[in-house]
Simulated assay, not measured.
Amino acid sequence: MTDAPSAADLTAAPADSSKGTLRILQLYPREMNIYGDYGNVLVLKQRLAWRGYGAEILEYDAGDAFPDDVDVVVGGGGQDSGQVVIQDDLQAIAPRLRELAEDGTPMLLICGLYQLFGRSFRTHDGTVIPGIGVLDLETRGGTERLIGNVVATSEEFGEIHGYENHSGQTFLGAGLEPLATVTKGAGNNSEEKHEGARYKNIVASYLHGSLLPKNPAIADFLLRTAAERKFGSFAAAGVDGSRADPARQHAGARPR
């Protein structure tokens, strides 16, 4: 059994960064990082390293100075209590996040931050947590917990695998397309069989697991988009595309 990666392992750029370095920002890792969501950052870093790019991992928690130069934004999930803790700070940095989103910065938003990038989240006890309005969606807490393995299909990314665990019921507005159509599981809510959302270069999803190890097509979309924006091109070769296949097959075969 290997040791967990140290802080230095997470933040250091690979030795071979001859093709350039991307700056990857994780939002609120202290409060919004459950169900292994930091694994998404590690996948981005490793898939860059395999291709000869560097990755500078930045972390933003409440009260920190928001970095000036960001190439990819990653946000994870958290308890309702965690969302309450960060809500004021998130509103304070909302103008910068909206600017990045509208400019086309690639973002991966999972579960709790998926909800808070919408207009509002009304919890089951009636508490309204205002969102920052990047995404045209609303979420309301329900009595039913949507939990278990998910398989969904996307024209853009193919078959998507993950694990959901949420009681929030999210409904997309007219300005959004779903990320995928659910074939196993619930997804955004218990009614529509939609999972996640797509807007500009944002991928939003309820799926943990982490999401990116089993879904490298999404990881490479984020990296390719960021690299092309920063360097004008992306050297996609150098990664064995079959690495994730056993995990995807295993996840797809598991019961709900």
Rank of each mutant, 00 (worst) to 15 (best):
V150D: 00
E102R: 15
E159H: 05
R254A: 12
C111T: 05
A219R: 08
S205Q: 11
R47M: 14
Y35P: 00
L211S: 13
R122P: 06
K19S: 10
L113V: 10
R30D: 14
Y53L: 09
A180G: 06
E144L: 02
T183K: 12
G75T: 01
A152V: 06
L10N: 01
F231M: 10
Y206S: 00
N40I: 02
E155R: 11
D245L: 13
A8M: 05
Y114M: 04
S81F: 05
L42D: 07
T2W: 10
L10G: 00
P14L: 05
A55K: 11
T123V: 05
P95I: 07
H208Y: 06
I218D: 07
N188P: 04
R229L: 11
R98G: 00
G52A: 12
G78M: 09
I86Y: 06
A174N: 14
E59R: 15
L146Q: 04
A7H: 03
T123N: 06
M1Y: 14
E31K: 12
G36V: 10
Y53W: 09
L135M: 13
Q91R: 13
A237R: 00
G241R: 15
G39S: 11
Q115Y: 02
G104E: 11
P130D: 01
K45A: 12
I147W: 02
G162L: 01
E228M: 13
R122S: 12
A197T: 12
T181W: 02
Q249T: 14
K214G: 05
D16I: 08
R30T: 13
S167D: 08
I147Q: 03
A253S: 15
E192S: 15
H166C: 04
G82Q: 07
D88C: 11
G63S: 06
V70G: 14
T139S: 15
P246Q: 10
V70Q: 15
L179R: 02
F117I: 03
A251R: 10
A204G: 15
R47W: 13
R145S: 03
P213C: 09
P14I: 04
K200E: 10
K19V: 03
D136M: 02
E177H: 12
G77E: 01
L176R: 08
A204Y: 11
N188H: 06
P255N: 04
R248T: 07
A219G: 12
R248H: 03
A226T: 10
L211Q: 09
L113N: 02
E191W: 14
Y163A: 04
M107T: 06
K230T: 01
A251F: 02
E59H: 14
I24R: 08
A152Y: 03
A180H: 02
V73L: 14
I218W: 04
Y53D: 05
K184F: 00
T170R: 07
E228D: 12
Q26E: 10
I129M: 08
A253Y: 07
P130Y: 08
L207F: 05
S167W: 00
Q79G: 11
D61F: 08
H166I: 00
N188D: 03
R145Q: 01
Y163R: 00
S120C: 07
F117Y: 04
L179Q: 06
G118H: 07
G63Q: 09
Y206I: 05
Y114P: 00
